[in-house]
Design a protein around this nucleic acid. Structure first.
Length: 743
DNA sequence: GTCCGTAGCTCGGCC
DNA sequence: AGCTACGGAC
C-alpha cells in the first residue's frame, strides 16, 4: 500500500490532534478526549487505519467499548470504511470479551462449560443465604452492603484471603468470611457474577502464561474507550494483554469519570503515562458538539474540582443561546414546564421528539416527568429504571432457562421451584438444604433425594412434578430446540402461562406481552447459551432505539450520548448532588463530574430545572438549590421561570386530564398514572419556623446537641423535621414541640 | 405446612 | 412507593 498520510482519506476532515492519534505509529498512546471532541470518530478511523494503512489483520484487533450498542455501532462504521473483512475483529465491552475468553477455557478455573452469569439480584440472594446461615444479624450486616464490599474487593483484585488479611475490624472479617463462602457457592452452582467475569479472566491469564501468550499474540492491537471508568481489575487486564505488543491505545476523559461506586479508578487514566515507558499523549480539546455557552457552563462547573487535569473545551461554532433555568414550585410544575417546552419547540422550532432528552440523577425522578408526558400525549421512552430483564415474569423464565442449561444453579432453583405454585414452601426447601449440608453436596444434588430429606404431602408430589418437568425441558435442548421455541415449551408445559391467563388483570396481560417479547428476542439467537450470555450482559444504554420519542434516563446512562435539547432536572442539593455525597469531598467531585457529563450532552439548548418543593418517598418536602447552579456565571443563564397566577396554576392541574393510549405507553404506566394523579397539594405558604429550616441547615437540640436538617415534612402545626444528630443518628421531630434552635 | 393479606422498613448511580 | 416479616385461614 502506498497511500501516504497526506492523502489518506482516513485522515480527511480531522483536526491535527485527531489525525495524529489516528496515524499513531504504534506503542502506547493516551488520548485525552474532552467531551464532544470526536473520540468515537478517532477510534473508528484508527481501527480502519490499522487495517488499511498498516495492513493489520482485523482478527488482531481487540476494541473495548462501554456498551454493547457502542460496540455494534463502531463495528458497523468500520465496516463502512474498510468492508466486511472487519467482521473478524473483536469489538465489545470488557464483560462480553471476558465471557468469550472464559467460555474457551472453563475447566482451567474449575468451572464447567455451561457456567451461567449471576446478575446483582442473584448475587445478593446468594449472599443473603450465606449471611443467614452464618447467623449474621441483617441489621449489622445488610446484604447490599456486604455485596458491595465483595464487589469492590473483586474489582480491586482482592480475593477472600487478601480481604481477610486487610481486615482490621470484626465486621470486615465477617464480610471476608461471607466472601469466601460466596465464592465456594458460586463455583458449586457453576455461576459467576459480573465482577468474576473480569477477575476470573485476570486469574486465568495469571495462572496460565501460555493461555495469556496466546491472547497477547492474537490481540496485537488493543483499543479501550472510556478509560477513566476502568477499575483496577480491568486496568490490570489491559496491562496483561498489552505487555507484549505494547500497542495499547486508550481514550478517555478524567472529567467524565462517574463510576467510582463500582470501582472505577481515575488513577488508571491519570497514571497511564507511568504504566509504560514511552507513552505518547494527545489531547483533544476542540469540541464539535455544543455551543460555546454550553461549554462555558461545563468548564465553569468542572473547574471547581480539585482532583483533575486542567482542560478547557472550546468550539469555533459560535456562542449560541444562554442556558435556561426554570424553578418550579414543585416537581409537578417542573415536569409540566418540560412537557410544554417540548411541545412548543416541536411546533415552532421544527424539532422532532427524538431531539429531546430529559436527564435526572435518580431513577425515581422519572415518575413525575412521565405523568406530565402522559397527560400531554408526549411519546417517550424511559431507558433503564426497572429493566425488562428485572421484571418478575422475565426473571422467572430466565431462571428456568438457566436451570435447564446449568442444573447446579442454586439461586435459579430456589427462585422457580415453586413457580408456578406446586405446594413447595420454605420448610420443604429447608429440609432438602439440611440434607444437602449433611451429604456435603449442593442443594440441587439433594433435591432428587427429597424423600430421604423427609419432604411430605403436597411438597413431595410438587418436587416430583418439578423434576419431571426439568427433565422434559432438558430433553428439548438435547433435541436442539431453538431458544424461542424452548420458552414457548416452558410456558405451556410448566403451567406458567395458564397461571397468568387464569386471571386477566392488567398486570397479567402485560406480563404475557412481555413474555411474547422475550420469545421474539430469544428467537434471534441460535443457541440457549448465546441467548443467556447476551441477555446477562445487556446494558441500559443498549435499549436506546431510533423511534421519534423523547428519551428519559439517568445522567449515568446518558454518558457518551448527545441530543440537540437537553433538560437537566431536579438540580437540588440532596438529589443532585446526591445526599450521600454531600459530606465526602471525593464523592462530591464525582457528582460534579456527573453534572459536567449531563451539561455536555447538549448540542444547542440546555435547560436546567429544579423545584422548591419535591415529593419523594411518599412525602413532600422543601428543597435547596443545587450548589452546582451557583458555580455557573449568571451571565450565561436566562431565568425562564414563570410566576403563574392561582387560576393559571389551578387550570394546569385540573384542566387537561386527557389520558390517551396511542403513544405506545404501556398499560402498567397508564395504570400507575391513574392511581397517583392527585399527588400534589400545596398548602398556604409555610410558617416562619418551617421556612427557617431547610435540608443542610445546622441546628442544636436541647438534649441531643448538634445536628443537620435532612428533611422537612408537612406544614403548619403538623410540620415535622428530620435531623441527623452526630450523637444519636437520625430523628424525626414534631417541629412545634422540639426544643430546637439554629446553630 | 402452605398460601395470602397486612404491617413495618428502606429508599443512588450500573456492567 | 416497593419489598420482607409476620399472623391467620385452609
Amino acid at each position: 500500500m502506498t497511500i501516504t498520510n497526506s492523502n489518506n482519506p482516513l485522515l480527511a476532515g480531522l483536526n491535527p490532534a485527531q489525525a495524529a492519534a489516528v496515524s499513531h505509529d504504534g506503542g502506547p498512546l493516551l488520548v485525552i478526549a474532552g467531551a464532544g471532541s470526536g473520540k468515537t470518530r478517532v477510534l473508528t478511523r484508527r481501527i480502519a487505519y490499522l487495517i488499511e494503512a498498516k495492513e493489520v489483520h482485523p482478527g488482531s484487533i481487540l476494541a473495548i467499548t462501554f456498551t454493547n450498542k457502542a460496540a455494534a455501532e463502531m463495528k458497523e462504521r468500520v465496516n463502512e470504511l474498510v468492508g466486511p473483512i472487519a467482521k473478524s475483529m473483536w469489538v465489545s465491552t470488557f464483560h462480553s470479551a471476558c465471557v468469550r475468553i472464559l467460555r474457551n477455557h472453563p475447566e482451567a478455573l474449575g468451572y464447567r462449560k455451561n457456567f451461567v452469569i449471576y446478575d446483582q439480584d442473584d448475587a445478593e440472594k446468594l449472599i443473603s443465604l450465606i449471611s443467614s446461615s452464618m447467623g449474621l444479624d441483617t441489621k449489622r450486616f445488610p446484604t447490599r452492603q456486604s455485596a458491595s464490599r465483595i464487589s469492590n474487593a473483586k474489582s480491586e483484585l482482592l480475593g477472600p484471603k487478601e480481604l481477610m488479611a486487610k481486615a482490621t475490624h470484626i465486621m470486615e472479617r465477617k464480610v471476608a468470611e461471607v466472601y469466601a463462602q460466596y465464592q465456594e457457592r458460586l463455583l458449586g452452582a457453576n455461576a459467576m457474577d459480573f465482577d468474576d467475569l473480569i477477575y476470573k479472566t485476570h486469574e486465568l491469564f495469571e495462572r496460565y502464561p501460555a493461555i495469556l501468550e496466546q491472547y497477547q499474540r492474537r490481540f496485537f492491537h488493543l483499543l479501550v474507550d472510556e478509560y477513566q471508568d476502568t477499575n483496577v481489575a480491568q486496568n490490570a487486564l489491559v496491562m496483561q494483554l498489552g505487555e507484549r505488543s505494547r500497542n495499547v491505545f486508550v481514550v478517555g476523559d478524567s472529567d467524565q469519570s462517574v463510576y467510582g461506586f463500582r470501582g472505577a479508578d481515575m488513577r488508571n487514566i491519570l497514571e497511564f503515562e507511568k504504566a509504560f515507558e514511552d507513552v505518547a499523549v494527545i489531547k483533544l480539546e476542540q469540541n464539535y458538539r455544543s455551543t460555546q455557552t454550553i461549554l462555558d457552563v461545563a468548564n465553569s462547573i468542572i473547574s471547581n474540582n480539585q482532583y483533575r487535569e486542567a482542560k478547557n473545551l472550546w468550539t469555533d461554532q459560535g456562542s449560541g443561546e444562554k442556558v435556561r433555568l426554570f424553578v418550579g414550585d414543585d416537581d409537578s410544575e417542573e415536569s409540566n414546564f418540560i412537557a410544554s417546552s417540548i411541545l412548543r419547540e416541536r411546533e415552532t422550532g421544527g424539532r422532532r421528539y427524538s431531539d429531546f432528552a430529559v436527564f435526572y440523577r435518580i431513577n425515581s425522578n422519572s415518575r413525575s416527568v412521565e405523568e406530565a408526558f402522559i397527560r400531554r400525549g408526549i411519546p417517550y421512552r424511559v431507558v433503564g429504571g426497572t429493566r425488562f430483564y428485572d421484571r418478575r415474569e422475565i426473571k422467572d423464565t430466565m431462571s428456568y432457562l438457566r436451570l435447564i442449561q446449568n442444573p447446579t444453579d442454586e439461586i435459579a432453583l430456589r427462585r422457580v421451584i415453586n413457580v408456578p405454585k406446586r405446594g413447595i414452601g420454605d420448610q420443604s426447601i429447608a429440609k432438602v438444604a439440611t440434607l444437602a449440608a449433611e451429604m456435603g453436596t449442593t442443594l440441587v444434588d439433594a433435591l432428587s433425594k427429597y424423600e430421604a430429606a423427609g419432604v411430605t404431602g403436597r411438597a413431595k408430589s410438587g418436587i416430583a412434578d418439578f423434576l419431571v418437568l426439568m427433565e422434559a425441558l432438558r430433553g428439548h435442548v438435547r433435541d436442539e430446540m431453538p431458544p424461542g421455541e424452548l420458552i414457548e415449551a416452558f410456558l405451556d408445559e410448566s403451567g406458567y402461562r395458564s397461571e397468568l391467563a387464569a386471571n386477566d388483570s392488567v398486570d397479567n396481560l402485560s406480563r404475557l406481552d412481555n413474555l411474547s417479547e422475550l420469545v421474539s428476542v430469544a428467537s434471534e439467537h441460535e443457541t440457549l447459551e448465546a441467548f443467556l450470555d447476551a441477555s446477562a450482559l445487556v446494558a441500559q444504554a443498549d435499549q436506546i432505539q431510533g423511534d421519534d420519542v423523547v428519551t428519559l434516563m439517568t445522567v449515568h446512562t446518558a454518558k457518551g450520548l448527545e441530543y440537540p435539547v437537553v433538560f437537566l432536572t431536579a438540580l437540588e442539593d440532596g438529589i443532585f448532588p446526591h445526599s450521600r455525597s454531600l459530606y465526602e469531598p471525593k464523592e462530591l467531585e464525582e457528582e460534579r463530574r456527573l453534572c459536567y457529563v449531563g451539561v455536555t450532552r447538549a448540542r444547542e439548548i440546555l435547560y436546567l430545572t429544579r423545584a422548591n418543593q419535591r415529593s419523594q418517598y411518599g412525602e413532600s418536602s422543601l428543597t435547596i438549590p443545587s450548589r452546582f447552579l451557583d458555580e455557573i456565571p449568571p451571565s450565561l443563564i436566562e431565568d425562564v421561570s414563570v410566576r403563574l397566577s392561582y387560576e393559571e396554576r389551578r387550570s394546569r392541574y385540573l384542566g387537561d386530564s386527557v389520558v390517551q393510549s396511542a403513544s405506545g405507553l404501556s398499560s402498567s404506566t397508564l395504570k400507575r398514572y391513574g392511581t397517583t394523579s392527585n399527588s400534589t397539594k400545596v398548602d398556604s405558604g409555610p410558617r416562619l419556623s418551617v421556612s427557617q429550616l431547610k435540608p443542610g441547615i445546622p441546628v442544636v437540640h436541647g438534649s441531643w446537641g448538634e445536628g443537620v436538617v435532612t428533611a422537612i415534612d408537612g406544614n403548619g402545626d403538623n410540620a415535622s423535621v428530620t435531623i441527623r444528630f452526630s450523637s444519636v443518628g437520625s430523628k424525626k421531630l414534631i417541629l412545634s414541640y422540639a426544643p430546637l434552635k439554629l446553630a
